[in-house]
Design a protein around this nucleic acid. Structure first.
Length: 474
RNA sequence: GCGCCCUUCGUCUAUCGGUUAGGACGGCAGCCUUUCACGUUGCAAAGACGGGUUCGAUUCCCGUAGGGCGCGCCA
């Protein structure tokens, strides 16, 4: 009994994997995992004009980065064209399809006329019942599906519910182009059937196609898979996703410093819910995932929330893993390779030791990259405006007093803190008045991890030298 | 224009006829504090509108408005 679930992700390789596609893939993947079924990957490359191998690898990379895998080899839809043609011929032979000799130009005029007269834009079925003997010379025909003209086509959608289309609103679509290549709606049906797909999970933009595809399934006598049409993701302003918003390839999210596990969590929560649960591991998501939990309304992409979630994942990632994530991330971001070049073994060790303080303050890997700069900085440090202000604001005196205190202390965060606090008490100085000047000369900025951790990680020699550099500034 | 779909705090959402309409992000205020964060406490914030059905509607039905998707020899 092989009643197990088979889903598929079927992107067309005309560009990168955008965020909506990523979520569709995630849902297909999660559902397959949840049911211990399979998720297949099929590249819908029947449009030879627009499909590119670069796009195929971009999509594969994107999926891989997101942590989504698929069963078996990615299937090229174009590679199955002869089977699609075969099915078109079967339909033709059974009288369920016919040759249409309209030229593209004629069709264009038909559409324009309909639009001008404010009539529905549909193929008029000119060749549906016409004698093929009347075929004009020199026109290569297309093959059109002979769609039912009466009654209705019903889709029992797992997300949208029961959706009814009147057959009179659906015209005879072309299933085989005049050049002999199949079109999308035919290919999808044939492939999903042949590949044993049991559940089709895709964007609502395919809802109308679902009706036409259902008609083809029925014409072939094939059983129709379960369908789940998920709502689209809009930009933050509610409008369509644009380049400025979320219509970025998933690799752009990688370059923005988001962790794949955070992306998975965020994307899952966008349109799908399991009660009030907000943060869950991928394992938990798989366990909980179900088509019933998918909402019907479109959602907006919210970078702020993504950032918050990402920050949560960063804080909860262990130091060694985060160092690795950062190192793996650097090649993908501007300035990253240069930074990577400076990270030798001792520097990597420092980075890891500083990580607990660093990750507490970072929402993205970009933040981490920036906030760890002080570790790599070459003496004498360039101070930013705020750091200069602190030095100018009585910072020099504080540093002068602190220098002997520090140089006599044991060099670890605990002892250094004790020494500085004792000094503060003895002199009546506020700790902040001592910590900020130290932060300024040690990091060149006014924000950093806890100052005693900074001293510790930097080490005695480097720290004292940076302080002395600072004293020379005045 | 035609067809289909959608509509709860600013955003993501819970609710599957009876709740003070809950949670999360963000916002505001406080606490914590060596900066920034983190953490923590509290506050403000929603059922598009109009009709039904019902003892009772956010929830079911109809309409209106708004939004989205589709209408290719693209996928």
């Amino acid at each position: 009994m092989s009643s197990s679930v088979i889903t598929r992700f079927a992107p067309s390789p005309t560009g990168f994997l955008h965020i909506g596609g990523g979520r569709t893939a995630l849902f297909n993947w999660a559902y397959a995992k949840k049911t211990q079924g399979k998720m297949l990957l099929r590249i819908e490359d029947t449009d030879r004009e627009r499909s590119t191998p670069e796009a195929v690898s971009a999509i594969l990379d994107g999926l891989t980065w997101l942590g989504l895998d698929w069963d078996g080899e990615a299937v090229s839809q174009y590679g199955r064209a002869s089977r699609h043609r075969e099915v078109a011929e079967i339909l033709l032979a059974r009288g369920l399809a016919y040759r249409c000799y309209c030229t593209p130009e004629e069709l264009r005029q038909m559409r324009e006329k309909a639009e001008m007269e404010k009539r529905p834009v549909r193929y008029d079925g000119a060749w549906r019942d016409r004698d093929p003997a009347q075929a004009p010379q020199g026109v290569k025909p297309t093959i059109r599906f002979k769609a039912p003209q009466d009654g209705e086509t019903v889709i029992e959608d797992r997300v949208m519910g029961r959706v009814v289309f009147q057959n009179k609103d659906l015209d005879d679509l072309i299933i085989l182009r005049s050049d002999g290549n199949p079109t999308y709606n035919l290919s999808v049906v044939v492939d999903d059937h042949d590949m044993g797909v049991t559940h089709v999970i895709r964007g609502v933009d395919h809802l109308t196609n679902a009706a036409r595809q259902t008609q083809i399934y029925k014409a072939m006598g094939w059983s129709v898979p379960d369908m789940a049409h998920i709502p689209l993701i809009h930009g933050p302003d509610g409008a369509k996703l644009s380049k400025r918003h979320g219509a970025l390839g998933v690799e752009a999210y990688r370059a923005m410093g988001y962790l794949p596990e955070a992306m998975r969590n965020y994307l899952a929560r966008l349109g799908w819910s399991h009660g009030d649960d907000e943060i869950f591991s991928t394992e938990q998501m798989i366990e909980w995932f179900d088509l019933d939990g998918i909402g019907k309304s479109p959602s907006r992409f919210d970078f702020v929330k993504l950032e918050n979630l990402n920050g949560h994942y960063m804080r909860h990632t262990d130091d060694e893993q985060l160092v690795r994530a950062l190192l793996a991330f650097l090649p993908h971001v501007a300035g990253g390779p240069e930074m990577l070049a400076r990270i030798d073994a001792p520097m990597r060790a420092k980075l890891k030791r500083a990580m607990p303080g660093l990750k507490e303050r970072a929402k993205t890997l970009i933040d981490l990259m920036k906030s760890s700069q002080f570790l790599f900085a070459q003496r004498p440090l360039a101070l930013d405006d705020k750091a200069r202000q602190i030095i100018a604001d009585g910072g020099v005196a504080a540093l002068e007093a602190l220098l002997p205190v520090l140089s006599q202390a044991d060099w670890n965060a605990h002892s250094l803190e004790a020494a500085v606090k004792a000094h503060a008490e003895a002199t009546g100085a506020k700790l902040g008045k001592l910590a900020q000047p130290l932060r300024a000369v040690l990091t060149g900025t006014n924000t950093s991890p806890g100052i005693f951790d900074v001293l510790d990680v930097l080490g005695r020699d480097e720290s004292l030298s940076r302080i002395e550099d600072g004293l020379k500034l005045s």
